[in-house]
Computed example of a mutant assay.
Amino acid sequence: MQVIKSSVFKNHLPLELVVLEFDADSYEPQSFDLFNQPFPERIKKAVLKRQAEYLAGRICATQALTALNIDNPIVHTADDRVPIWPTETFGSITHTKGIAAAIAGIQDCATGVGIDIEKLMKDSQETKLQTHILRDDEKTQFNDFGKQVTHPLSVIFSAKESIFKALYPSVKKYFGFDKAKLIEFNETVLTFEIMHNLSKHVQSGLKVNVHYQLVDDLVFTQCLFTTT
């Protein structure tokens, strides 16, 4: 499988970010061996497109960990499909059609990070999915945000995905989009408030910042969470 390093997104976090463009059409199952990546049984049963996306994400993760001088820079997968990062590291992986990214850092405290890439939704999708992604009490902020960007729901959806990934290590369970409410925004950052007690470290009232970027037909979000 062909992969090319990309600089399409800027990194707003003090961590190692790797973004790769990949050609899923050139993927073959042997590509896992070529890139020295484990080939999980669950992924072997997936369609080739899914295999290519998984591999591209793991290649990004390995490159990010290598930049941190990690001796065994391989990210395995837990039974609940959560990435297993090497001891004393943490990170996040994302991919969409033809592009993948991973971010990683050294774990010096209870920390989580989330990144997400999404294709911008069609206008009809943005209208249809509002009730699934937005809380009733964030509609005013959403409408104001829509005066600043062309695809506000796509950005908020991606931001909430990144929040979930960043908080998951501290929550250890699934939580829905309704647990985070958009309260502020500017040209590069969205601020959310957690609306429920999710764990010891993730309590109602917690403020979480998400960096966002819109590039062509993509949105990229980053969220870093550190407990003290």
Results as ranks from 00 to 15, higher is better:
residue 1 M to Y: 09
residue 5 K to V: 15
residue 5 K to F: 14
residue 6 S to R: 07
residue 11 N to H: 11
residue 12 H to Y: 15
residue 13 L to H: 04
residue 17 L to G: 05
residue 19 V to Q: 03
residue 19 V to G: 00
residue 20 L to H: 13
residue 20 L to Y: 11
residue 21 E to W: 13
residue 21 E to L: 07
residue 23 D to W: 13
residue 24 A to S: 15
residue 25 D to K: 14
residue 28 E to M: 09
residue 37 Q to R: 13
residue 42 R to I: 03
residue 43 I to G: 02
residue 43 I to S: 03
residue 48 L to T: 11
residue 48 L to K: 14
residue 49 K to L: 12
residue 56 A to H: 13
residue 56 A to I: 13
residue 56 A to C: 15
residue 60 C to S: 11
residue 61 A to F: 08
residue 65 L to Y: 09
residue 65 L to E: 15
residue 66 T to K: 07
residue 67 A to R: 13
residue 69 N to W: 15
residue 73 P to C: 12
residue 77 T to W: 06
residue 77 T to M: 01
residue 79 D to E: 14
residue 83 P to R: 07
residue 84 I to P: 00
residue 84 I to V: 08
residue 85 W to K: 02
residue 86 P to T: 12
residue 87 T to A: 07
residue 94 T to E: 03
residue 95 H to Q: 00
residue 96 T to A: 04
residue 96 T to M: 07
residue 97 K to W: 09
residue 97 K to T: 07
residue 99 I to E: 07
residue 99 I to K: 01
residue 102 A to P: 01
residue 103 I to K: 05
residue 103 I to F: 15
residue 104 A to C: 01
residue 109 C to M: 13
residue 110 A to K: 10
residue 114 G to Q: 03
residue 114 G to H: 04
residue 121 M to I: 11
residue 125 Q to N: 12
residue 133 I to N: 06
residue 136 D to E: 06
residue 146 G to A: 06
residue 146 G to R: 08
residue 147 K to P: 01
residue 148 Q to M: 05
residue 149 V to T: 09
residue 149 V to G: 00
residue 150 T to E: 14
residue 152 P to H: 02
residue 152 P to A: 01
residue 153 L to N: 02
residue 153 L to M: 01
residue 155 V to P: 00
residue 155 V to M: 00
residue 157 F to W: 14
residue 158 S to Y: 12
residue 158 S to T: 08
residue 159 A to T: 01
residue 162 S to E: 13
residue 162 S to V: 09
residue 163 I to R: 03
residue 164 F to P: 00
residue 177 F to L: 00
residue 177 F to P: 04
residue 182 L to Q: 06
residue 185 F to W: 11
residue 186 N to E: 13
residue 188 T to S: 05
residue 193 E to I: 10
residue 197 N to K: 11
residue 198 L to K: 12
residue 198 L to C: 06
residue 199 S to D: 05
residue 201 H to C: 07
residue 203 Q to C: 14
residue 210 V to R: 09
residue 211 H to K: 07
residue 212 Y to S: 02
residue 212 Y to T: 05
residue 214 L to H: 13
residue 215 V to L: 08
residue 217 D to L: 13
residue 218 L to K: 12
residue 219 V to W: 10
residue 221 T to W: 14
residue 224 L to W: 13
residue 228 T to K: 10
